[in-house]
């Protein structure tokens, strides 16, 4: 892979990014975080934690669209590998996501802000899941835009995870005895999602046809 090729790829990949989905997810997250700064608003630390978790989820839902590629089938069979293209997409988006998350953290009043490191770990794990789900869909189906279904399942799974008792859960309250253990689970989830993403990207894509995902012939 030459540097010239990489530079040539940047403008079209930049243009092909799902900016609308990213902006909606990020924008909603920032609005939610900003709501804690409303006059007469004195959010508790529990509220700060809940808000930041929702912000992280909104960001992840937007990120789930990152691999959407309507031109997927038209660009099959080219020598520039898919992992490189996916990696470039992520590289282009990462600085914006980092700045967005930092802004969200600082929008929460310091008094009600939960430990940034722990919450950043949660946000990273959610983001990794948001990337791993569509990567899996791409590997095993002919879907070109798996973002919508990945976002749906990420949202549903996150809501379901809120119902899990603290003993096994991820979304535990700060200051409880399960806080550290839960964040070990977050770290494991982050690692698993990263491995899944990395495993699903390389070509050739091994697939199992899923009928409603198959727009083409047999």
């Amino acid at each position: 892979m030459s540097r010239a090729l990489l530079w040539a790829l940047v403008p079209p990949v930049w243009r092909a990014l799902p900016w609308r989905a990213l902006a909606v997810g990020g924008g909603l997250g920032l609005l939610l975080a900003a709501s804690t700064r409303l006059p007469d608003s004195t959010p508790s630390s529990e509220t700060g934690l809940a808000v930041l978790r929702m912000v992280a989820l909104f960001g992840a839902l937007g990120l789930a669209f990152l691999l959407d590629d309507p031109a997927r089938h038209t660009t099959t069979g080219v020598p520039v590998r898919r992992p490189l293209r996916a990696g470039l997409r992520l590289t282009l988006v990462a600085p914006f996501m980092a700045a967005w998350w930092t802004a969200a953290l600082f929008l929460i009043p310091a008094a009600s802000r939960p430990p940034a490191g722990f919450l950043t770990l949660e946000a990273l794990a959610l983001a990794a899941c948001a990337l791993a789900l569509p990567a899996t869909a791409i590997r095993f189906t002919t879907e070109t835009e798996p973002g919508r279904i990945a976002a749906f399942w990420l949202g549903i799974t996150s809501l379901a995870a809120c119902l899990v008792p603290d003993k096994w859960g991820l979304f535990v309250a700060e200051g409880t005895g399960e806080w550290d253990t839960a964040h070990m689970r977050w770290a494991v989830l982050l690692g698993l999602a990263a491995v899944l993403w990395a495993t699903c990207l390389p070509e050739p894509l091994r697939r199992r046809s899923v009928p409603h995902f198959t727009p083409t012939g047999v």
């Binding site: 010239a4 040539a8 520039v80």
Partner: peptide, 27 residues
């Protein structure tokens, strides 16, 4: 040329073919 070719709808015809040309390593 696949059976159901897809495109980035906001690309121009030139930009899209140019993108594919880059993917074919025409630098």
């Amino acid at each position: 040329l696949p059976q159901t070719p897809g495109f980035h709808p906001d690309f121009t015809a030139f930009a899209f073919v140019d993108y594919v040309a880059i993917l074919k390593e025409l630098t």
